[in-house]
Amino acid sequence: MQTPLQDLRAGFRDVLPLALGAALYGLAFGLLAAQAGMSVLQTGVMGSIVFSGSAQFVAVERLVAGAGAFTALVAGGALNLRILLMTASLRDVLAGRPFWQVLLGVHMTGDESWALLHATRATGRAVGYWYLVGAGACMMVAWVSATSAGAAFAAVLPEPHAMGIDFAFTAAFIAILRGLWSGRRDALPWIASAITVASLALLTPLEPSWALVAGGILGAVLAGVWGKDA
């Protein structure tokens, strides 16, 4: 068992490759924010209090596209529905903590810190709450500084798609999936999730965020109903 400080440091360190990816992605968000007419201060404040890369991207992209604040909000909010499932799956990490720690923990929960926590635990390391907070803090430093820098230096930055940066997170999540794989009992829920999201996204006009949530839930239901306790 590690002390909270060791856990915090380990989380901060282990998430560094992902933070680097987020920083590059953050520069791209800063570019977009500048196009939306956001100041460097607004960009930095948004990064720290919203702290959700994909939702920020979608919402500000809608603003740039000329949609109103309400449409932008709904689009960004819908994309974050998956976070509901993420913080729900953190219950053993958050259980019994004082409310300020719950607040801090859920605010530090992003795709990267959350997935890394689960992947690290799958390797048998007994990391917990402070590991998540450390990883989230590192992500926040990278995200806030990169998005602000992107907004400040929008005119001189290269286009992220050409650099292949947009693929960094797909690759990262593939690596994290490898870490989460615990044997054949995962196969059915995972395949069901992939087929659900693919069919909903390709065959129906459903918002991709809803397809994502539906796939995740259906896979989990299968694991719950037909699975056996490990």
Partner: peptide, 26 residues
């Protein structure tokens, strides 16, 4: 029971869904 197993499986199924969606859009 079933609820706990489902919640435990959620990280894997949710990330699978995320990667699938990203690959479909590519």
């Amino acid at each position: 029971g079933a609820w706990a197993r489902g919640l435990k499986a959620l990280p894997g199924t949710l990330i699978t869904a995320l990667v699938t969606l990203q690959l479909i859009h590519g």
